[in-house]
Design a protein around this nucleic acid. Structure first.
Length: 583
RNA sequence: GACCCCGUAGCUCAGCUGGAUAGAGCGACAGAUUCCUAAUCUGUAGGCCGGAGGUUCGAAUCCUCUCGGGGUCGCCA
């Protein structure tokens, strides 16, 4: 439990007892009692809204209740003094010794500092990327990929069990089209001069064609394509998945599980899911109205088919589960897929999608609610678009003109760390600019550099300290046993307080499904460290290395290493290297 | 036409699920700096949180309406 939760729990417990003694019930207001770091450090170390939130329950005005709580809070260990401010805020000031005692806590946990241990760890499934296996990944997908991966890391940091899953869309018409395109390439490899403008044009299919040509030989030219489809498709899909896995690896991403849509269909999962939902009356036979925008479409004819009652869950219309030819729609197999995931015993399904899937959320949420019986079984994280810029100009990408950038290209140009961290610098629902020049600049405007530089600086100090005191052990465990009482300055304590907020930052990022917050938290930590560093230029007592004073130096380096631990902890979630030197 | 997301400093964005005097970086101006200076730090200026109502002790945050910007509508995946 982190320190804010610690005080919060004590306070809530006290309020509960106080209320019980008076025969009162605070009800839900007790859960609204918070102990938080104040926005303004001048307000102390911690602030609570307790008096304002529960005063009505006691039939008192907030300030009067605050007065009564003051004595209790002053008696808690580590509390130096308690003040009441404004409409009834209670501000706590903690003793320096309390903060100093947190340094060993951090050092002992190292990069695991901030790892939470929830009462009941959840079994979480994070499904991300899941691009169509018809070619290498488009660079636009890299945001979804990184966000999903970091979200997975974050859930693990929060103490949950995570399965990283990739859903292979290998059952639809696109899979057949891929097989057809690969077939054409195979024919070309066998010397035939054929082509079809409808096919996927990329060169990446040429080697696949060669493989097919070698595997099946000239027999391929016998009979028509339809006869070969079932044999060619799995080979082509597998080849595409290999390309995609390579792209993912370039980004440092590895899934635990790849689930094939086709195998779900063939295993009868769709029938099973449909049967189950039909029994609950969420699926019926009906005819959809002519869709908007298809007023003039001569191909559209009304036809009775299986429908999912998504209007029951707020969708505009009910959604079709079968196509014209009676095959399942994508939505139908997606229901089956999520039905399957629920059966596998996950408490929470997280789906990371691109912004273009926004309109799909309602119907799938409806399906999940129908299956699991609760709304919060699934969370969709929708990622807005990335605009790639070169020299301030948007890089236009189109598959047709061949001017698209591959994931490999980007990583080669700026590096994996940069791609990963920059993708996390915005809220997922905000658009993101990725400027090839800016992201590699060595300035504080670039969060990648700024944060890594802080970590490198910390290790530079460690090296210097070791040089100054060759006989002293500066390992984390040794530092944890040092006396930190010399760390008294306002600047040092302020930095320490920021470090101690880290576990709370993790907790809140998880609750909000907003991993980007960690980047901002790390920037704040790095900033505090850089400021402390510069402060030492004017005020020598703030310097980290004092060649004439071993004990003081050890304490300072303990603090510096605590900073490094927290940065490492954060970069670990982001999947970014914590470098020790960057000359 | 419907639904979803976004409007916060000149620019790019945070804002801790409703808290106290709204924050950072860039850009501008003025400074500091032999411990990683191709960096970093300190200060100054800059705001009707798109607009109008409402909810309450208290709103950038929640609700309604409205104006702008983006996205999505299918029996594609």
């Amino acid at each position: 439990m982190h320190i804010y939760a610690h005080f919060q729990e004590k306070l809530r417990h006290h309020l509960q007892e106080k209320a019980q003694a008076q025969g009162l019930d605070l009800g839900q207001n007790l859960a609204r009692v918070m102990v938080e770091p104040p926005r303004d450090p001048a307000h102390g170390c911690m602030a609570t809204n307790a008096a304002m939130v529960v005063s009505k329950g006691f039939g008192m005005n907030p300030r009067a209740l605050a007065e009564e709580l003051k004595a209790f809070l002053e008696g808690l260990e580590g509390v130096a003094n308690v003040e009441i401010a404004g409409p009834g805020f209670i501000n706590l000031r903690l003793k320096p010794s309390f903060w100093q005692s947190q340094i060993p806590e951090i050092l002992c946990k190292d990069a695991d500092y901030g790892k939470l241990s929830p009462q009941k760890p959840l079994n979480v499934n994070v499904e991300y990327v899941s691009v169509n296996p018809t070619g290498p990944m488009h660079v636009g997908h890299s945001r979804v990929a990184v966000v999903g991966d970091v979200m997975s890391n974050l859930m693990e940091k929060a103490g949950h069990r995570v399965t990283r899953e990739f859903y292979i869309n290998d059952a639809g018409a696109q899979a057949d089209k891929l097989a057809k395109s690969a077939y054409v390439r195979a024919c070309q490899a066998l010397g035939q001069d054929v082509s079809d403008p409808e096919d996927y044009p990329g060169d990446y299919l040429i080697p696949v064609g060669k493989v097919l040509a070698e595997k099946f030989g000239p027999d391929l030219l016998e009979g028509d394509f339809e006869a070969w489809l079932e044999k060619l498709r799995p080979v082509a899909i597998e080849a595409m998945m290999d390309l995609i896995k390579e792209d993912l690896q370039t980004l440092g991403i590895q899934h635990d599980l790849f689930t094939s849509e086709r195998s779900l269909v063939e295993a009868g999962k769709v029938d099973e899911a449909v049967k189950s939902l039909t029994a609950k009356d969420f699926i019926y036979k009906g005819t959809l109205p002519r869709p908007k925008g298809a007023e003039d479409d001569p191909d559209w004819t009304p036809q009775e088919r299986l429908l999912f009652r998504s209007t029951h869950f707020g969708d505009d219309i009910d959604r079709a589960l079968t196509k014209e030819d009676d095959r399942w729609t994508y939505f139908a197999s997606d229901i089956a897929y999520h039905y399957d995931k629920c059966q596998r015993g996950f408490d929470l399904l997280i789906n990371v999608w691109g912004a273009d899937h926004g309109g799909y959320i309602k119907r799938l949420e409806g399906a999940i609610e129908a299956i699991a019986g609760r709304k919060d079984a699934m969370k969709v994280i929708l990622c807005n678009m990335v605009k790639f810029l070169k020299d301030g100009e948007p890089v236009t990408m189109s598959k047709r003109s061949g001017t698209f950038i591959s994931v490999q290209d980007v990583v080669e140009e700026v590096g994996q760390d940069v791609v990963r961290l920059i993708m996390m610098t915005r809220r997922n629902d905000a658009p993101l600019d990725f400027d090839f020049k800016e992201v590699t600049e060595k300035t504080k405007d670039n969060p990648v550099f700024y944060i890594q530089y802080a970590h490198a600086r910390a290790h530079s100090l460690l090296r210097a300290a070791k040089e100054a005191f060759p006989k002293v052990d500066f390992d984390l465990n040794a530092l944890a046993n040092v006396d930190f009482s010399t760390l008294q300055s306002e600047e040092e304590l302020a930095t320490l307080k920021i470090l101690c907020q880290w576990p709370r930052q993790i907790e809140q990022a998880v609750e909000a499904f907003e991993p980007h917050r960690l980047v901002y938290a790390l920037e704040e930590i790095a900033g505090a460290f850089h400021a402390l560093w510069t402060a030492g230029k004017e005020n020598t007592i703030l310097r980290f290395i004092h060649p004439e004073d071993q004990a003081r130096t050890q304490a300072k380096i303990g603090l510096v290493m605590a900073i490094a631990c927290v940065i490492r902890s954060g970069l670990q979630v982001l999947g970014v290297q914590a470098v020790e030197e960057m000359r």
